[in-house]
């Protein structure tokens, strides 16, 4: 940062004291302004969510209305959920999320660790190839993936294992963030262990993995969160079979024209129940998420 040199201004040093006082009042003012800004932002950020929560406790009507605070409060909408397939969807999503988190983490770690630590023929080419295919819009693939899964009988009612398979199988492409992390662990650690006679596998399990806790948690967290929000691909695969839907698909179906008037507040209640575990988990593991995205951004 050579520009620093240009900032020399001799007069500052001649009257340091007065200037200091100015800075202090200035800081108080600017901090107050920032606090006010942050409060405003927080309100803007939270209003929609507060609205959704309030709607979910509204009893007097089930459709969209023009006011926010319910006239009559109650758990009716949550009770109404029990009469739908909502909890089947919820369980489906939970199963998908757990298995995806487990297998996807293994796949991603395998990929990223290998690409970070090993130097083998074709490595650069492989990475470039994956970069290039990553640029192809994946949206269309779902038409083919549907047919492959249909041939394996993993659609409709069996969509849950089908979705896990697809999520996990294509997850190797997302190795970038954790490779960036592995790159930061000094190679000398591996070499020392290798000299001591450890095999490559032992190096991975005994030395690297314990150090990689943040990135492992980051990977699990992102893999666990994604299935809760997938409504395009999951809708295509479940083909309207309630048994195979995830929460996103199920809830989304309540917003179509025939159902919205009767199911709107129930949708809000379902939304709240979906958001709670994901949000809570996210809040707890925020630290790791930050380290993950920061690492990913820095390494690109």
């Amino acid at each position: 940062m050579s520009e620093m040199n240009q900032l020399e201004t001799p007069e500052v040093e001649s009257k340091p004291k007065k200037r200091h006082m100015g800075i202090k009042t200035q800081r108080v003012i600017s901090n107050t302004i920032i606090h006010i800004l942050l409060v405003i932002m927080s309100v803007v950020w939270l209003v929609p969510f507060v609205c959704i929560v309030l709607q979910s406790f509204r009893v007097e009507s089930t459709w969209q209305v023009g006011y926010i605070v319910p006239q009559k409060w109650g758990f009716d909408n949550y009770i109404a959920l029990t009469k739908t397939d909502f909890f089947t969807w919820y369980l489906n999503t939970f199963i998908i999320a757990v298995f995806t988190a487990l297998f996807q983490t293994i796949v991603v770690l395998c990929m990223s660790y290998t690409l970070s630590r090993f130097r083998f023929r074709g490595r650069k080419g492989l990475m470039r190839f994956m970069l290039i295919i990553g640029m192809f819009p994946g949206m269309l693939s779902m038409i083919i993936l549907y047919r492959i899964l249909a041939d394996l009988h993993l659609t409709q009612g069996n969509a849950v294992p089908g979705l896990i398979l697809v999520y996990v199988a294509s997850s190797g492409m997302g190795y970038y963030v954790s490779k960036g992390f592995f790159d930061t662990i000094p190679k000398s650690l591996d070499e020392a262990a290798r000299v001591d006679g450890a095999t490559r596998m032992q190096v991975l399990f005994k030395i690297i993995l314990p150090l990689a806790k943040p990135i492992v948690i980051y990977t699990i967290l992102t893999a666990f969160m994604a299935p809760w929000a997938d409504f395009v691909f999951a809708r295509y695969i479940s083909m309207n079979t309630s048994q195979g839907m995830n929460v996103a698909v199920g809830l989304y179906s309540w917003l179509n024209k025939d159902q919205i008037a009767g199911k709107y507040t129930t949708f809000c209640a379902g939304g709240v129940l979906v958001a709670i575990p994901v949000t809570v988990l996210f809040m707890f593991l925020q630290k790791y998420y930050v380290s993950g995205v920061t690492g990913g951004a820095v390494k690109g």
Binding site: Y146, M239, N240, S253, N256, D258
Partner: peptide, 20 residues
């Protein structure tokens, strides 16, 4: 018997007649 919106039904049927 499955609940499928009338508009949706056609989309699904055309996607995969066999599974419809």
């Amino acid at each position: 018997v499955e609940a499928v919106g009338e508009g949706e039904a056609a989309t699904q049927m055309t996607t995969d007649v066999e599974a419809g």
